[in-house]
Simulated scan of single mutants.
Amino acid sequence: MRRKLDDAWSIDLTGAWQRERPVAGLTTWRTPGRSMRVGGVVWRCASAADIIASIDLELPADPVGKVGEGGSGGVGARAAWLYRDTGDAHYTLYGYNFTDGEGLETVFVSADTADTAWAFAAWRSVTHEGSQHAGR
């Protein structure tokens, strides 16, 4: 089901997700065994490659994998880092979607290390309305 994250961003989430009240600019969505944290980010005068490089420096070391892709659905580029066994969560996917000058950070957490497909599918389903990339 397509869900609005804010005025411009939306995502497909399968199942009975519940949205919690935003705290410090971040909104958390939950369903049994899974959660997603969402926050907007703004970049000025930086290329997607520069943005991805700066994010890479801020994330924890030693990800299991990194993914970079061209975007779709109004999104210019996408990047993600996957971590396993991070405390009480068995895996965490940090996903980023970019348009010109703004972006969306989504952090997907699950207790099931065998099923990362849902998080990658949700991250890839993020769309942005109104950017110059729409329709590409």
Rank of each mutant, 00 (worst) to 15 (best):
A117R: 04
E58D: 04
D115C: 12
G15D: 02
A79K: 07
Y94N: 13
H128K: 11
K66L: 04
A80W: 08
A89R: 14
W123A: 15
L59G: 06
G70N: 06
V41Q: 11
W9G: 09
H128W: 05
D50F: 09
P60F: 09
E105K: 03
I52A: 15
A48R: 11
G130K: 09
T99K: 00
E105M: 10
W123H: 04
V41E: 12
A121W: 08
G103R: 07
T14L: 04
T27Q: 12
A117C: 08
L5M: 02
A24T: 03
A89D: 13
D6Y: 05
P32K: 04
G95M: 06
W118D: 04
G130L: 06
E20Q: 01
L57N: 14
T31K: 15
Y91H: 12
G33S: 08
H133S: 15
G101T: 10
D56Q: 13
D100A: 10
D115E: 12
G25I: 03
G39S: 00
E102L: 07
A114R: 13
A53Q: 05
D56K: 15
R34L: 15
D12F: 01
D6A: 08
T92D: 00
T28A: 12
A48V: 01
A48Q: 10
T116E: 14
A46M: 08
Y94Q: 15
T86W: 00
A24V: 08
V109I: 03
V64F: 00
D7G: 12
V64G: 12
V109E: 15
S125E: 14
V107K: 05
S131Q: 06
D62A: 03
W9S: 14
W123R: 03
S125H: 06
V41N: 14
A24L: 00
V64L: 14
A111Y: 06
S10A: 09
D115T: 14
V64Y: 06
L26E: 02
G40R: 15
L26M: 07
R30D: 01
T31L: 02
R34M: 09
T127K: 11
L93Q: 01
G70W: 11
R34K: 15
A134F: 14
G15C: 12
L93K: 10
V109K: 11
V107M: 07
D85V: 05
G74T: 01
S131E: 14
R124M: 03
G33A: 13
A16E: 14
M36V: 09
G73I: 00
R2Y: 05
D7H: 04
G25M: 11
D85L: 05
A77F: 11
R78N: 01
